[in-house]
Write a protein that binds this DNA or RNA. Structure first.
Lengths: 274, 274
DNA sequence: TCAAAAGTGTTAGTCGTACACCCATGA
DNA sequence: TCATGGGTGTACGACTAACACTTTTGA
């Protein structure tokens, strides 16, 4: 960690809201599996959700967008706040903040022998340590991205940033497991009210692909034919010319969403009973 | 405001999380109308949602419960977090915090002439002022209470605490209007997934009453007979012996929820299409 | 006895469910 | 040619939507 980095972080802390953070569950869909972006922390034991802090004059959603862009390079992404996690214990255990603190302590050791500027830095680190060790309430956002467009970038505190299959997650820091579960539950509830297919799939996709998406999100198997009929009846898709000629079987049609119709249909919910 | 009150508040501030609050949309149902509890602030211009701050070692939900109990006297109430409101501008305008500050400034004027203890108090007030003027991110909770069981109590900063009809709300502080709208939207979405009827209605109720509740929440008219059939088919009600013999018409049956069956049915959503 | 509100029933059409059959493709 | 997976169709039962008649009650 460079000295300038430390200074920069101090400046940031002054400009951050205290005690609040955002964490992102970034969903992608690939190879018939629902995946999320996770960071492997430098201690090599735990993984964590991408997250960050909120500048004092920043919208919560903008903070989330900023984090999203830093990890994926993407902008203009579907993003939705889903829950606040604020148990007092959540930040007391072994978590990302403590990792941060470790990193910062190392910086002290390495650099505090040098100059006046570094004495200043020691103060900063103490400040930072204090700040990070406090309780944090985090706002959970979920994002829907198109898998192929993402170029995952790790941050300073992590070794790597990769997609992890939702069905086999690595050990996670703090309450991030719980956050992911809640995000998934929310995704299920939002399926009929938000353009989830539109945002998770590429522009063109096949009906079986859409079905797998629904099956993974819902965690159930669906009948091929009934699924097709139902989706078609929603009247939100346009069928293109045949393609997807890679497999050892009949080539499925390609579809794309009619965004206007999709949005309109979502307003009342796709299967709203009332 | 008593001096001890000021001291007490200072103690509280030290123990509060900074920059975070909770606000409550407390729903009740009476006279065929959906109502919420609002506070009329002492400036006599604006009304506000009941709200409060979070102690440093307190669960968010416990903070909400605490506020709820202070305003209604009730415990064991259905409470659900629904959204975070964190726009940087939300606390810059004329809002409850500014009212608080006004109150506190008056305290200064009255009491700062007296003793050393009051000098100390001045400091507190400055602290408090500083604290309250900062940006606040607030977690919105909605609560469902049985109207007749509530005994609304105003807090120190308000003249009164009363039920307001959802269809004719008074002018509201800050973004509280938006918070209420979001709460209502959420209530609609939760109708098939949470025991909303159970918590808003008295133990015994009639089918027309239940229907009015649904109509008010959804904002639409429903067919009497179809509504009845549908609800009955959910298999979550037990019919009692006739009653509600007050009106100039045929006495409707009384029903009550079979809580076990209701909860079980809600797990998959009452009309879940998937 | 009358109006208002509640209980109950019917019917047609739509939708969900559970199926079976045929078609295209690469190995 | 065959296994795999995809496209399409049908029939039954359940549910929805629209609607009418009867019953109870206080004024």
């Amino acid at each position: 960690m460079s000295n300038s980095r430390n200074i920069e972080f101090k400046k940031d802390i002054e400009n951050y809201l205290p005690a609040i953070s955002v964490d992102l569950v970034i969903f992608g869909f690939h190879d018939n599996d629902l995946k999320i972006l996770l960071l492997e922390l430098k201690d090599k034991e735990n993984w964590a959700l991408p997250g960050g802090f909120i500048f004092k004059d920043e919208f919560l959603e903008d903070a989330a967008k900023r984090v999203l862009q830093e990890r994926t390079g993407l902008t203009g992404i579907f993003l939705e706040q889903f829950h606040v996690f604020g148990d007092p214990e959540r930040t007391r255990m072994n978590n990302r903040e403590k990792q941060l603190v470790k990193q910062l302590e190392n910086v002290e050791n390495v650099e505090s022998v040098e100059s006046v500027e570094n004495v200043e830095d020691d103060k900063l680190s103490a400040e930072i340590r204090q700040w990070l060790l406090g309780r944090f309430v985090t706002v959970g956002f979920y994002a829907l991205v198109e898998y192929t467009e993402v170029n995952p970038k790790s941050d300073f505190y992590s070794i790597q940033c990769t997609w992890c299959d939702i069905s086999s997650l690595p050990p996670l820091v703090s309450d991030h497991q719980k956050i992911i579960e809640k995000a998934l539950q929310t995704l299920r509830l939002h399926l009929n009210f938000h353009p989830i297919g539109l945002n998770l799939l590429p522009k063109e996709f096949t009906m079986p692909e859409l079905q797998r998406l629904y099956e993974t999100i819902l965690g159930i198997k669906l009948d091929r034919r009934n699924f097709q009929r139902r989706i078609i009846n929603y009247n939100i898709l346009t069928r293109l010319s045949k393609k997807r000629t890679g497999g050892a079987f009949k080539a499925p049609y390609l579809y794309q969403f009619d965004e206007a119709l999709y949005q309109k249909a979502l307003q009342n919910g796709l299967d709203s009973p009332w």
